[in-house]
Structures are given as C-alpha cells and as structure tokens.
Simulated scan of single mutants.
Amino acid sequence: MSTSQPLRGVVPPVCTPLDASGEVDTASLARLVEHLVAGGVHGLFALGSSSEVAFLTDRQRAVALETVVGAAAGRVPVLAGVIDMTTPRVLVHAEAARKAGADALVATAPFYARTHPREIALHFRTVRERAGLPLYAYDLPVSVHSKLSTALVRELAEDGTLAGLKDSSGDEGGLRRLIVALGGRDGRADGPAPSFSVLTGSELTVDSALLAGADGVVPGLGNVDPAGYVRLHDAVRGGDLGRAVEEQERLVQLFGMVDAGPESEMGRNSSAIGAFKHALRLLGVFTHGTTAGSQIQLGDASVAHVERHLRDAGLLPVR
C-alpha cells in the first residue's frame, strides 16, 4: 500500500460473521469479502466497530484478520483495526496485524484512563514508529471519550505520523474545518499533507462530505450494499450531483434497518450490527445473523423489519 498517495473511495468496515456458538464463521467471512470486492470497493477495514472488534478475543481477531487478508488476496488494501485501551496493548495488536499481512493500521486514541493531547500524540507516534505500517487515526469520541482536535490531526499529518483519519465523531462542522486546515477541497495538493486521507464514517452524509473534499467513506451499511456506495462515490467524483443525491437518499432509507431492534429492549449498537448481519444472511452471504455476546439478538419481528428495508431498496425481489 503506497504511503505517497491518499487512500480514496469506499472502504467498508468488514462485519465479522459468527456461527451459532459465537466463533468466527470463516466461510461466511470469505463470502463477504467477495461480495464487497464484487461491489467495487476500494479497500477493506477489518476489525473496526462494525466488525465488533471490542467483543472479539485476541484469537478471534487473528482469525478474522487472517481470513480477510487471505480472501482479499491483494486485490484491495486491507486496513486492520488495532483498537485497544493503551499503547502497549495496541502495539501487540499492531505486530499481529503486520504478521498477518495487513497493509495499514487503524487506531483510536487511548481510552479508559483520561489522556492529555500530548499523550495522544505520543501514542500515535509510538505506534507508527514501532509498527512500521501506515497508520490511520479513528476519531470515535462516543466510545473513546477523546475528540481528536483539528490542530492535533494536522500536526500528526504534517510530521508523517498519520496517513489519514476516519472521522466517526458526528461533527460535520469539525470535519469541514479539518479539510480546510489541510488545504481545502481544491488546494490539498499544495496543502500541508498532500498524501493524507480524510474518510467519513457517516453513511448518511457521504455526498456532502465528498463534495467538501473528503477522500472517501467507511460505511457500516456498505457491508450490505457496497455497490450503492460505490455508485454514490462515482457520481460525486463524476460531477453527477443529481444521481449522487438520489443514491444517497436511497441509502438513507436503507439505513433505517438499524432501528430493527426495539429501543426499550436492546442497545442501538446491538440493533445496528444485528441488522447488518441479518441483512447479509438474507442476501445469502452469511449463514447466521449472530452478534457477539452479551448483545441481545434480533427477534423475528426485527428481522422482518430488515427484510422490508432490503426489498424497498431493491436488494431483494418485491413479493
């Protein structure tokens, strides 16, 4: 994976299929990689939030990553999440990812203990230096409790520590300010970090993020409809904004599947990941829709909700 050119396009965070006993279903995972590559994606992000990385044991992480790298077979770059609470733990995951053949790493700021921006900077610099692979920051303040500031990201971009950023902060204004700080939509080749990639994690505002100057998207829903996100990306890049808006609006409707699980009975993460997994099962990619414990599993009514969204989006035949 080249560090001189920014990563661009659609890079889904690959869901991790589990069998009925909760172990990684490698056959389904290999089918998912084929589903994504056939959909035209530009890269794969293994062991991210949609991969349930926080729920997997180290052994399961290794199985999942090795399966994704093997199934990708060099056709697209594989980014490996090395997410953990502290730098020493992240370094262990980074070494495992390097040995597994990952092309780049994705890490959050440290969490559990409260950290200072200088400690966050030291964390990323240490991981980049020790791991020897391109490193992408994952801005996920809802889980990590630390928002990566524009000043810090720019500093780490300028000194070559970070190859890019996945922004899942939900702060659209902050994302736009970062893009401007890095040189703006049209001036980034002359900006402080021409090889730095800005990737949005928001499935619902991809058209506007790309128009603002983002390089790509990391959509959890892209597991279900990778071709839809590729069409959206290509429409924006090709200047067909009408087609882009139409595709984005279709994907917004499809995203409604994440509300499948009753809010009074289960968490929103359990509902969303369960929806993605059952959608992939209904599409014939996964064998099971099992989510990792102790998340509550979707019931029949919730699965029917997912199926309706697939049919409405044209991904399953209308009955």
Rank of each mutant, 00 (worst) to 15 (best):
T67M: 14
V69H: 09
A72F: 10
A72S: 09
R75Y: 12
V76G: 06
P77S: 06
V78D: 02
V78Q: 01
L79R: 00
G81V: 00
G81E: 00
V82I: 09
V82A: 04
I83N: 13
D84S: 12
M85C: 07
M85L: 10
T86H: 09
P88R: 08
P88L: 05
V90Y: 00
L91K: 03
L91D: 01
V92F: 01
H93M: 12
E95I: 03
A96H: 05
A96V: 00
A97R: 00
R98F: 07
R98I: 13
K99M: 07
A100W: 12
A100S: 07
A100C: 04
G101C: 04
G101Q: 01
A102L: 01
V106T: 04
V106Y: 08
V106H: 08
A107P: 02
T108Q: 11
T108E: 04
T108P: 10
P110E: 04
F111I: 09
Y112R: 09
R114I: 11
R114W: 14
T115G: 09
H116Q: 14
H116F: 15
P117V: 13
E119N: 10
E119T: 11
E119R: 10
I120P: 01
A121Y: 05
H123A: 13
F124W: 13
F124I: 10
R125F: 09
R125K: 14
T126A: 12
V127L: 11
V127F: 09
R128E: 11
E129D: 09
R130D: 04
A131I: 02
A131L: 09
G132V: 08
L133M: 12
P134Q: 12
